[in-house]
């Protein structure tokens, strides 16, 4: 398979990239790892006349802890860089582990976290765990920058609120009071599968009581969604299998899955019940975020 001709730009900075995206508008597409855009071009789902390569911008390639701010993850880091990051392994092992569950090794060496989010596939593995940790996204455009909670970035399947000239430059996981978190993916194979259901949970435990919780469901709605009724139900309750099972039932009622080649809507709903319970149990008992 060959790609159609296009004009290619290799900007030296995010600002230059945004100016190019502004200039060419809907004719242009930014690519980082290329694992989504190039494949869509081969399948003739996308035909950009201009490609703006941002994969080698060093300013997007950091993972660092900034005291008072939190862990900053540049949008240009690959999934394997997220997985192998010492900072993340120490502070948010659940994020490192979630990155490892995406696709396969070869793809994880190319695909970036910014691409995974901007592509906004409902079954993507990174959004649930990042949303569960109250992550924000810094968005830079030709006319300025803005910061949004990550959950507000998604607008629908393959759609975000980003304008043509905007790029996500970094994600910030703020210092929080969560004591445990995890992402559990249910796919039809051990590796390389898209999530049938992906559930992220984070909890703040105090003397066996759940002070706060987040439950984020992937692959069961047009965008990753929080199971807010289940979260509210958990607050103030003692942690335990029965409470988590009940939260699972509530969360199952909060998603709107579709039936597709991988699973029926009914099955997905039931798997949300099961995986919410398991994820809460793991987050509450594992002793790390």
């Amino acid at each position: 398979m060959y790609l159609p001709d296009f004009e290619y730009f290799n900007p030296d900075s995010v600002e230059e990239a945004c100016q190019l995206l502004l200039k060419y508008g809907s004719k242009a597409k930014a690519i980082a790892g290329g694992t989504d855009v190039l494949v869509k071009m081969k399948k003739e789902l996308l035909a950009p006349e201009v490609i703006v390569g941002i994969g080698q911008l060093s300013q997007l390639k950091k993972i660092e802890y900034v005291p008072g701010k939190g862990v900053v993850i540049g949008s240009g880091v690959t999934h394997n860089e997220v997985q192998n990051s010492k900072v993340l392994q120490e502070k948010y092992l659940s994020v490192s582990e979630a990155a490892h569950q995406m696709a396969n090794n070869q793809v994880r060496n190319l695909g970036t976290i910014g691409g995974n989010i901007s592509n906004a596939v409902p079954s993507a593995d990174m959004p649930p765990i990042l949303i569960a940790l109250d992550t924000t996204a810094k968005i830079v455009g030709a006319k300025g920058e803005r910061t949004l909670p990550l959950e507000d970035v998604f607008a629908g399947p393959n759609e975000t609120v980003l304008e043509h000239d905007e790029l996500i430059t970094e994600f910030v996981i703020p210092d929080g009071s969560f004591t445990g978190s995890t992402y559990m993916k249910f796919g039809l194979r051990a590796s390389g599968a898209l999530a049938v259901v992906g559930v992220a949970a984070s909890v703040q435990m105090e003397d066996g009581v759940i002070k706060d919780a987040r439950i984020v469901l992937g692959a069961v709605s047009p965008v990753p969604v929080r199971a807010k009724k289940a979260e509210d139900f958990l607050k103030g309750k003692p942690a335990g299998e029965e409470i988590f099972a009940e939260a699972g039932v509530i969360a199952s009622g909060e998603c709107k899955p579709i039936s597709d080649i991988r699973a029926s809507a009914e099955y997905r709903k039931d798997m949300v019940r099961v995986f919410t319970k398991r994820a809460l149990n793991k987050a509450a008992n594992e002793g790390h975020v």
């Binding site: 398979m1 290619y8 290799n10 690519i31 790892g33 290329g34 694992t35 190039l38 494949v39 390569g53 994969g55 080698q56 394997n80 090794n105 070869q106 793809v107 060496n109 190319l110």
Partner: peptide
């Protein structure tokens, strides 16, 4: 690092 060369632009 192992990558799929079918998804890499030569220019990059």
């Amino acid at each position: 690092k192992p990558v799929n060369s079918c998804m890499v632009l030569t220019l990059s």
